[in-house]
Nucleic acid binder design. Structure first.
Length: 911
DNA sequence: GAGCACTGC
C-alpha cells in the first residue's frame, strides 16, 4: 500500500490521538514474549483478522514464498513493485518471522533459546537483558524518504499485525523512528524509519548489528540519503563476505531488499554485484564523465558513457556480465536477485499536443474547458504546473471561466425562457483548488474534502502531488511537463532554481495519478516527439546538490578516501572538491591530512547544514558566548520556509489573504531610510507610527534593520517568551506563520538538548550554557545590546564567512557579476568567488529608496539620491553575510546581515 | 530592483 500522504498525520496532536487509539486496548498487558498468543489483544487481533482478507487481495500476496526464499538465498533482493502492489506493508510482514530474522547471540543461539535457559538462573532477567544487548539482528528496518510515509505505514502495518503501535505497549511489534518522534518499544521487530534516521544510527553502530534485514523503499526517487545508505549497506555486506568477523556480526550477514516502483534496476544490480575494487577501476577510467553513473548494464545507458568508443563500451559491458569470475575483496561475491510484482492500476490513456503549445497557460485552460464540457462526473482534474506563480495565474483564468459558465446558464434560463443547450444545462459547477508546499495546511487539506454536489474539482498543483500527496477522485491529468528544480553550481557556489522539463519517469508518475480509482486520461501539453526527447529519469540528488553534507558524513565514518567510496552514481569530481574546500574553510577537515577534525566531528552530529553547525559551535566559545541566540537563529534558518506571512492592508484583518490576491512580503520592509553607520548601531524602529496597520506596527517592533538574522532572533524570542501566553494569537497579530514557528520550536528544543551537554562546547567552559528547556529569560522587546548583537553576528560569521559580499563599488573590478547577467549590475560582490549578487526582496536590507527614479512610497524623499548607479545607494552596508544564494531571475542572497569587514579580518579569514 | 519545486537529520 502506498502511503496516502496524509496531511493530518503531520499534525502531532492528531497523531497522538491515533497512537492512543492503539494504546487503549493494550492497557493491562504485562511484558513478556510479545509473540505469545495470550498477550495479543483480542480486539486488535480481530481487526487484524479482518484486514487479512484485504491483504490477501494484494498483488504481492501470492509471491510471499518466492520472496522469502529469495531473501534466504541471497544477500540482496531487488524488488520492482508497481503502484498498489502492497510491497511497503507486506514485505516486512513476510520476513519478520523467518529464521534469518531472529535475533542471535554471537554463538549463533536465538533469543528464544537464551530466554529459556535464563528461566533456570537466579538472576535470569539480568542475563536476558545482557543477552539482548549483545544480540545481533532481530529487527527489520524499512526506510522511507518521508516522515509521513514512515509514520502512516507503521500505523497500517501495526494494525495488520494486530499489535499496538510503537512504545505504547510492550506487546508492540511495529514501531517507527523519525526526527522528533522515536516510537519503538523493546519488543519492536519491524521498524519504519526515514533514511536520515538510519544514517544517524549508522554513526553509532557502523555495522547495523541491530538489524537482520534493511529494506530500502522508493529508491527510484534517488535522494542523497538513500545513495549514502546504499554505499554503507554494500560495505557491510562486503565486510561480512570477507569473513573473520570484520563486520562484527559474527557471520550473521545483513540482508538487503531494495524496492522501486520503476523497472530500471540494472544500475543497482550492477552496483551491488561488482566489488568495490571493480568500481574503483571503472571510476578512474571514466573520470571525464560528467554524470558517470556506475553500474549501468542496459544498452541504452551504456551508450551514454562519455569518453568511450563503442568498442570500449561493449568491452565494459562484457566485463560486467562476466560475473562468475568476479571476486569481492577477499570472500565470495555478493549475490543479487530480483523480483517483479505487477501493480494494481487502471489504464490511463495518454494524449499529446499535435504541435508545441505557444502558451502553456492558455493551452491548459483550453484542456480544462474541453474535459469539463465533454466528460461526465465523477472525475476531478489535476493539473501539474511548475510553481506558485503559474498556479496563481491559471487559477485566475479558471475563476473567470467558472464565472462565465454561471452567467451563461442562469440568466438565459430564467429570463428569456429559451431552453439552454443540453450541455450547458448539464454542466457542473467548478471548484478550483491550488496546491503547493508553502500553502497553509488548512488550505492544503481542502483536497481531501468532498466536493459540493454536482461540482467538478480542478486541482492546480506543483509536483507535491506527484509523490508526497495523493489527491482523491482524480480521473484527468493535465501535465505541462514542467517543474522547478534546484541545481548547485559548485564553481559559483550558488543554487539555481529554474523551471525545467520533467523526465519521462516523472511524466509517467504524473499520468499514473489518474488511474488510482478508475480508468483515466492524461493530457500532456507537449508533443510526442518532445516526450521522447525528455531525459529518461530525473537526475539523482547527488548530482545536483551541495555535497558538504555527504563528504562530512563520510569523513565522520572514517571514510577518508571519499573519491572511492562506492556510490551508485558518482558525483562530478568538481562538486566533491568544492565540498572538501568548503569543509576545510569551516575547520571541519584537517588541511594536511584531510581527516575530520574535532570540530568536524561535532558538526556531523548536529542536525544542521555544515556552515550553520559551524556557527553554532562558534557561539559556545568563551569569547562569543551566545549559544541560546545562535540556537534560535540557526533553528529558523534550517527551516526552508520563511516565518513572515504577507501583511494585510486592513487593520485587524487576521484571516488568510484571498485567493488570487498578489502577495507581497516586501511590505514587511518598512521605512528603512536611515543609513547605517556601523553594522550594530541600528534600532528597532518603532518611532514611526504613521498610517500603518496594527500588524505592521507589531511587526516593526521585531525588525532589526540591518540584519535578517537578528530580526529572526527577535521574532523567536518574543514568540517563545513566557510572557507570550497565547502564541497563536501572537502569530496572528504579527502576521507570522504559526506552522513555521512551531516547527522552529521543535528544532530549537532538539538543538538546546544537544547543546546543553558538555559534548559540543568548544574551548574552555563558558559562563553560560544553553538551557535545555523551552523558557527564555529574555523580555518581549527586541535585542538592543550592541555587544550581544556583534557577538551573535561574529558567531554567524564563523560559519558564513565564505558568504561575505561587499559593495560592488568597493570590490575589485573583475567582478563575476557579468558572468551571470551582463545587463544588470549587482550591488554586492562576493569576496571568495567575485560573484555579483542582489539582495532578495524579502530581506530587511532590501530597500525601496535606492531605486533610481524614486520608490513607490509617497514619503520617499530619496529623489536626490536617484542618480546613484542602479541598485547602489550610499546608505547601503559596506559588507554583508548571507545564508543562501539562489539564482532565479538574478543571483539573490537571502537572509542577509550587515557585518563589519574588520571582523572578517579579525578572525584571520581574510588579509 | 521584486519572489521559493520537494524532501531529511
Amino acid at each position: 500500500m502506498k502511503a496516502h500522504g496524509d496531511i493530518q498525520m503531520a499534525d502531532t496532536k492528531k497523531k497522538r490521538k491515533a497512537d492512543e487509539a492503539f494504546r487503549k486496548p493494550s492497557d493491562g498487558a504485562h511484558f513478556n514474549n510479545p509473540n505469545d498468543v495470550k498477550f495479543k489483544n483480542t480486539s486488535l487481533h480481530q481487526k487484524a483478522e479482518a484486514l487479512l482478507k484485504t491483504r490477501q487481495q494484494l498483488p504481492i500476496w501470492p509471491h510471499a514464498d518466492e520472496i522469502k526464499q529469495k531473501v534466504r538465498d541471497n544477500d540482496v533482493l531487488l524488488l520492482v513493485g508497481e503502484t498498489g502492489s502492497g510491497k511497503s506493508t507486506q514485505i516486512p510482514q513476510f520476513l519478520y518471522k523467518e529464521e534469518i530474522c531472529q535475533p542471535r547471540q554471537r554463538s549463533g543461539e536465538t533469543l528464544q533459546k537464551v530466554s529459556k535457559s535464563a528461566e533456570n538462573v537466579t538472576n535470569g532477567a539480568q542475563t536476558l537483558r545482557k543477552a539482548q544487548k549483545s544480540m545481533i539482528g532481530g529487527h527489520i528496518a524499512i526506510l522511507q524518504p518521508r516522515r509521513v510515509a514512515a509514520i502512516s505505514l507503521a500505523a497500517r502495518v501495526a494494525a495488520e499485525v494486530g499489535t499496538p503501535l510503537g512504545s505504547s505497549s510492550p506487546a508492540s511489534t511495529v514501531g517507527y523512528s523519525v526526527r522528533f518522534d522515536i516510537n519503538v518499544s523493546p519488543s519492536t521487530r519491524i521498524k519504519f524509519l526515514t533514511d536520515g534516521m538510519l544514517l544517524q544510527e549508522l554513526l553509532r553502530d557502523p555495522w547495523l548489528k541491530e538489524y537482520s534485514v534493511v529494506v530500502v523503499d522508493e529508491v527510484h526517487e534517488r535522494g542523497l540519503n538513500v545513495d549514502l545508505v546504499l554505499g554503507f549497506l554494500k560495505r557491510i555486506i562486503e565486510a561480512g563476505k570477507a569473513g573473520g568477523d570484520r563486520d562484527g556480526r559474527s557471520g550473521n550477514g545483513l540482508r538487503v531488499v531494495v524496492m522501486s516502483a520503476t523497472a530500471d534496476m540494472g544500475g543497482i544490480e550492477a552496483f551491488f554485484a561488482r566489488s568495490t575494487n571493480d568500481l574503483k577501476q571503472e571510476e578512474s577510467g571514466s573520470a571525464n564523465s560528467t554524470n558517470g553513473t556506475n553500474g549501468q548494464v542496459n544498452d541504452k545507458n551504456a551508450d551514454e558513457w562519455v569518453g568511450f568508443s563503442d568498442d570500449e563500451v561493449s568491452g565494459k559491458r562484457a566485463n560486467r556480465s562476466n560475473g562468475t569470475n568476479r571476486q569481492a575483496i577477499s570472500g565470495e561475491e555478493i549475490t543479487v536477485t530480483s523480483c517483479h510484482i505487477k501493480g494494481r492500476q487502471y489504464p490511463v490513456t495518454i494524449h499529446y499536443e499535435p504541435k508545441p503549445a505557444e502558451n502553456l497557460l492558455d493551452t491548459a485552460m483550453n484542456r480544462i474547458m474541453h474535459i469539463h464540457q465533454h466528460t461526465p462526473l465523477p472525475g476531478d482534474i489535476l493539473v501539474f504546473l511548475s510553481g506558485q506563480e503559474m498556479i496563481e495565474n491559471l487559477e485566475s483564468l479558471c475563476h473567470t471561466y467558472a464565472q462565465s459558465l454561471q452567467e451563461k446558464q442562469l440568466p438565459n434560463h430564467e429570463q428569456s425562457g429559451t431552453k439552454p443547450s443540453r450541455l450547458q444545462e448539464k454542466l457542473p459547477a467548478l471548484q478550483i483548488l491550488p496546491l503547493f508546499a508553502s500553502l497553509p495546511t488548512h488550505l492544503q487539506s481542502r483536497i481531501f474534502q468532498a466536493a459540493p454536489p454536482f461540482t467538478r474539482r480542478i486541482i492546480l498543483s506543483t509536483n507535491i502531488a506527484e509523490t508526497s500527496l495523493t489527491v482523491p477522485n482524480i480521473r484527468h491529468i493535465i501535465d505541462t511537463g514542467k517543474h522547478k528544480s534546484r541545481h548547485f553550481r559548485p564553481g559559483l557556489n550558488l543554487d539555481t532554481l529554474l523551471s525545467q522539463p520533467v523526465s519521462r519517469s516523472s511524466a509517467a508518475q504524473r499520468a499514473g495519478r489518474a488511474g488510482r480509482e478508475a480508468p483515466g486520461t492524461c493530457w500532456r501539453l507537449y508533443t510526442q516527439s518532445d516526450y521522447y526527447n525528455l531525459e529518461a529519469d530525473t537526475q539523482p540528488e547527488i548530482l545536483q546538490t551541495d555535497l558538504s553534507f555527504l563528504v562530512l558524513t563520510l569523513k565522520a565514518h572514517s571514510v577518508d578516501d571519499v573519491l572511492n567510496f562506492p556510490l551508485l552514481t558518482r558525483p562530478p569530481r568538481r562538486s566533491l572538491e568544492a565540498a572538501l574546500e568548503h569543509l576545510l574553510n569551516l575547520d571541519a577537515l584537517d588541511a594536511a591530512t584531510g581527516k575530520i577534525t574535532e570540530i568536524g566531528r561535532k558538526m556531523s552530529m548536529l542536525p544542521l547544514r555544515a556552515d550553520l553547525a559551524r556557527a553554532l559551535l562558534a557561539s559556545t566559545t568563551a569569547e562569543l558566548d551566545c549559544v541560546d541566540e545562535l540556537v534560535d537563529i540557526v533553528a529558523a534558518l534550517s527551516l526552508e520556509e520563511g516565518i513572515f506571512l504577507p501583511l494585510h492592508k486592513k487593520a485587524g484583518d487576521s484571516s488568510m489573504p484571498k485567493q488570487g490576491q498578489k502577495k507581497s512580503t516586501s511590505e514587511l520592509l518598512l521605512d528603512k531610510n536611515k543609513a547605517p553607520n556601523s553594522a550594530v548601531d541600528d534600532d528597532n524602529d518603532d518611532s514611526d507610527t504613521g498610517a500603518t496597520s496594527p500588524q505592521e506596527q507589531a511587526r516593526r517592533k521585531l525588525l532589526s534593520r540591518h540584519s535578517d538574522h537578528l530580526t529572526l532572533l527577535n521574532a523567536i524570542q518574543a514568540y517563545a517568551s513566557p510572557t507570550t501566553h497565547d502564541r497563536r494569537a501572537w502569530c496572528d497579530a504579527h502576521a507570522i506563520s504559526h506552522r513555521a514557528m512551531s516547527r522552529i520550536m521543535d528544532v530549537r528544543k532538539q538543538l538546546r538538548q544537544l547543546m546543553s551537554g558538555p559534548k559540543f562546547r568548544l574551548g574552555p567552559s563558558t559562563s553560560r550554557t544553553a538551557s535545555p528547556n523551552d523558557s527564555t529569560q529574555n523580555s518581549l522587546t527586541a535585542i538592543t545590546d550592541p555587544d550581544v548583537k556583534s557577538r551573535v553576528l561574529k558567531a554567524l560569521l564563523a560559519g558564513l564567512w565564505p558568504n561575505v559580499a561587499i559593495l560592488t563599488t568597493l570590490a575589485p573590478q573583475q567582478s563575476g557579476a557579468a558572468a551571470v547577467n551582463p545587463n544588470q549590475r549587482a550591488p554586492y560582490t562576493t569576496l571568495l568567488t567575485t560573484q555579483g549578487i542582489h539582495i532578495h526582496p524579502s530581506s530587511t536590507l532590501f530597500t525601496h529608496r535606492t531605486v533610481a527614479g524614486g520608490g513607490k512610497k509617497e514619503d520617499d524623499k530619496s529623489g536626490a539620491k536617484a542618480r546613484q548607479p542602479a541598485g547602489i545607494s550610499s546608505g547601503m552596508a559596506k559588507a554583508v553575510i548571507f545564508t543562501d544564494l539562489i539564482y532565479t531571475s538574478k543571483a539573490y542572497a537571502r537572509n542577509v546581515s550587515a557585518v563589519e569587514l574588520g571582523w572578517v579580518v579579525e578572525m584571520g579569514r581574510l588579509s
